[in-house]
Design a protein around this nucleic acid. Structure first.
Lengths: 151, 151
DNA sequence: CCTTGATCTCAATTTAGGTTGAGACTGCAA
DNA sequence: TTGCAGTCTCAACCTAAATTGAGATCAAGG
């Protein structure tokens, strides 16, 4: 009498999901730590992942490529419905939100390039007058690294 | 008999150059450590900067905003002539090089956006087929952080 | 049953780009 | 010549995003 309740084939070990996503095992554990993903545990305390988690992890990879921090990604993932496996429509909504960010970054870089053109023309690179060094528009990466700590 | 050899007014202390560039004193010392700038020293071992170093530091700030790492910035600065104060023309050459990088990044992001549009259309976010997740074109930021260590 | 590979947790280390603090010395002005 | 702000060096610490290693435990095949 085979048990119909358990379908272990639907659950993936951390090694399996790592292979499927291309992520390292340690990175996946790290993401769990950061609450980006929540696998269930076996009686022996090992992680088991849903198939839909592959898509979730893929999203993390893609969003990182688009320049989002893990914190921002967590915010996006929080928009997914709790309790049920996300549908294609759920993912579409998030993708659209990311498209907006992408558009902004492209616009910022384009503005910067145009200003740089002006600077090349005038030979200008002095902070006092340079149009690039204008606090009014923050480029995506807002200034030197640890400076963020001040904020 | 005033000494005509010394023109201390042409040399700036670290505090002065920090005020003029908006950088912190500690950041400037850090850049010296990274060989991005080489102030001379007084008999009492204090740093003294040339006026042209203001422009050099400004360049560092601008290049960072454009997404270059300090290492890449060092490479660009290495193109400046040794021994003489850089001219406007010297800076123009470097600005032009950076403009190229900017163009590349804009092109990359634009390609990515177009692909994302395709993904939104098909609801696709699976690594196996997603056009965004294509190792063939590396977006400027090449994947998750510490992964760089491997290379 | 036993071995072996996979996992587990937890702490330390990495890179980039700095900041912060301690304790000592400099330099300029009154 | 003293007073004090500015500097000096050096070491420790910070965030992000992970990796690496130690030592223990799990799970599945033979």
């Amino acid at each position: 009498m085979p048990s119909p309740r358990l379908k272990p084939s639907d659950l993936l070990t951390i090694g399996e999901i790592a292979r499927r996503t291309g992520l390292s095992v340690s990175a996946i554990r790290f993401y769990e730590d950061k609450r980006l993903i929540e696998p269930v545990r076996t009686g022996g305390n090992q992680r088991r992942f849903l198939r839909s988690d592959i898509r979730r992890l893929s999203f993390i990879l893609i969003a990182q490529r688009l320049g989002l921090t893990l914190g921002e990604i967590e915010d996006e993932l929080a928009k997914l419905p709790q309790g049920r496996t996300p549908t294609a429509g759920d993912w579409e909504a998030i993708s659209a939100a990311i498209r907006l960010r992408l558009d902004e970054r492209i616009a910022e870089l384009t503005r910067t390039r145009d200003r740089l053109d002006g600077c090349i023309g005038c030979g200008c690179l002095s902070l006092a007058h340079c149009a690039i060094w204008n606090p009014q528009d923050q480029l995506g990466q807002q200034g030197p690294g640890a400076r963020k700590l001040i904020a």
